[in-house]
Design a protein around this nucleic acid. Structure first.
Lengths: 108, 108
DNA sequence: TCCTGATAAGTAGATTGGCTACATGTTGCC
DNA sequence: GGCAACATGTAGCCAATCTACTTATCAGGA
């Protein structure tokens, strides 16, 4: 999968994995990897800046903790983040319809 | 629809609309607009550079003509372009599966 | 005649987000 | 001792899309 393809779609995906429970960065990476069937293996240089961006924007809130001697920053969805996620899902449906309307992916 | 969302997805869409018949730039814009149900209204500053890029890459070939006093550059798919389109469609299916695996867009 | 909107093609420069590569430190296992 | 997994982060690169602009023809209405 090409890198750019993700552009603009990563944010809602990150919000989606912390929807049900707060997670720290590393766990978010693992969750994305798992939910995507091993396809979405984000480099840390992508994920961590994205998390900070989402926090700055008010969609995530974070909290430090220490587990087994390791420091974790755990992120949870804010109410603004919930709205953002909902509209992100909606936008995805629109986007998908646009691409498939043009691409007609049925016929290879 | 956000601008970045298109990143990396535009190329196969352009190739798709010239698959069945060669078209000139302006007609490609109209075709994209129509196939997307009015959603995909590309600025010329996006489309024309993209077409040149795709031609440089060998996926499109162009030819000038004059119709009704207006100059047109008509693009058609090369065989490399056909392969690219096929793999682009395949990649789209993968991408869609990844996003939906993570997003679970069913539950709003 | 003049103006506007549709047709047609293009360039210059800004933006931006995901990438590579690097830096730091812990824990547990061989 | 050394390596893999865990855990977080920064600096700087790159490329595709965008905004804003330019040029030109043609048709139709005021």
């Amino acid at each position: 999968m090409k890198a750019d393809a993700l552009r603009g779609h990563l944010d809602p995906m990150i919000l989606a994995v912390v929807e049900s429970e707060p997670l720290h960065g590393y766990a978010i990476m693992e969750a994305l990897l798992e939910r995507s069937g091993g396809e979405l293996d984000l480099p840390t240089g992508t994920l961590y800046p994205a998390l900070r961006r989402l926090e700055r924007a008010g969609y995530l809130a974070s909290e430090w903790s220490t587990v087994g001697g390791r420091k974790r920053r755990t992120y949870q969805l804010t109410s603004a983040g919930q709205k953002m996620l909902a509209s992100g899902k909606q936008e995805w449906l629109t986007f998908r319809a646009v691409v498939e309307g043009v691409l007609r992916p049925g016929q290879a």
